[in-house]
Design a protein around this nucleic acid. Structure first.
Lengths: 229, 229
DNA sequence: AGAAAGGCATGATAAATATCAGGACATGAT
DNA sequence: ATCATGTCCTGATATTTATCATGCCTTTCT
């Protein structure tokens, strides 16, 4: 029996496990991983479902969504690789508080939650490290919500444009992964006003819009708007 | 040397430690606790300070506040006993992300963070239990922020009135622990509009106001407003 | 006591945002 | 091919909220 080699060399979560688990424990955990590809638009978890897995995003982009009623949704956050997908309530609730939906083709790696918990109980260092990461994710959500709350329409749109450019795509030209409606659900304004504001930015030559592609043409001005509106 | 008896019989955090720590570890931790009384209005932690203690609220009421600039503040949440005070970033950041201020005379019990962390590393069950509690606190903050975001002025005021009545004071008559300005900072509206709305509720006989004392006179209507506005 | 500052209150007006309506365009289903 | 659906877009209007101004009352400071 040859030694097991984890195939996930690019997986950022490795460090978490590596640094804190015995080699044997790490490998047995890794061996049981279930990897799955969710195409763009597909539902990864449904709000209310039982949480059975500890999941993390290897590639792609997802949104966390809260269903208020039949018609209305709130987007809690967008999550990229390294942000855990089932992050929010994994240790505190038995059911998913939010739905998770793929915005781009996304690879999810899952481990049985029971086993991760078991491992955490046996290894405090691992548990603490896990808590740290989950904590940070929650913190970021709260901080972003506060940042959005303190801005008005224009500032909120500027903020989210800068978020995608700086945090997600690391480029001032990118394909907008979300619809105007989704932006509205994220910043808590109406779809019409999101559209209007983007048009306004286009007319003021702050951004260029070409189909799904957005180019930030005047970043300085966009930053100004994000700070002052 | 007689056996050490923890004096904090009413402390809800006991269970967390009790269930998960060896008696010796629990007692040595408990023996080092620092208990302090913060009078109403006093600063417990200042945003930006280094986090040195693991703290929890034994009695009283506090607010978590984010200073945006010289003049403007955002209130993140109110915390009662059982909610940890230094909860948000305790494992993920080295500095307090928010200030904590006493709204009522408050007793805080503190343990050295390093020691709690050390203990968590040595005891996975304890670490997991801690993570669970901190996780739940973050979840609640996020949920409350989403609940407020989906409402408009009247709904937000109704929501916070019901929050104090149902969650904090468990009574439809209570002394409002926060100013109109603080309500405004919490719900993200202006002070004038908070005042106006409360007056409106008073005129519509939904609440009675007598100095600091609020009485919810027509709870059914208040719930309706909270759901529809 | 008197002054200063802050909380509470209300009105008038301005600004921001939502709602409603309509149309162009793309996409997917039948 | 055609229909239905959904997204993007714009304008007109209504609603909601913020801002500005003012006054009263209480508390705090001196």
């Amino acid at each position: 029996m040859g030694e097991y080699q984890c195939s996930c060399n690019g997986c950022e979560l490795r460090s978490l496990f590596f640094e804190n688990l015995e080699k044997g424990a790490y490998e047995s955990m890794c061996a049981k991983k279930q990897q799955q590809l969710y195409p763009k638009g597909s539902l990864i978890y449904r709000q209310g479902e039982k949480i059975s897995h500890f999941s993390y995003l290897k590639s792609g982009l997802v949104k966390l969504v809260r269903n208020i009623d039949d018609k209305n949704e709130q987007i809690i956050c967008f999550a990229r690789p390294l942000d855990f997908v089932s992050l929010l309530s994994i240790f505190s609730e038995t059911c998913h508080q939010y739905s998770v939906i793929a915005l781009e083709d996304s690879e999810i790696c899952s481990l049985y939650l029971d086993e991760v918990k078991e491992m955490a109980m046996q290894n405090g260092r691992f548990a603490l490290s896990l808590a740290e990461k989950i904590n940070r994710a929650s913190d970021n959500i709260i901080l972003t919500m506060l940042n959005i709350r303190q801005r008005r329409l224009l500032g909120r749109i500027a903020y989210i444009l800068l978020y995608f450019a700086n945090e997600v795509y690391k480029s001032d030209v990118f394909d907008m992964p979300v619809s105007r409606k989704e932006i509205a659900e994220f910043i808590g304004m109406t779809t019409e006003n999101v559209i209007r504001t983007l048009s306004e930015f286009r007319q003021d030559k702050i951004i260029k819009i070409n189909g799904k592609t957005i180019e930030i043409a005047d970043k300085e001005k966009l930053v100004q708007i994000s700070l002052n509106a």
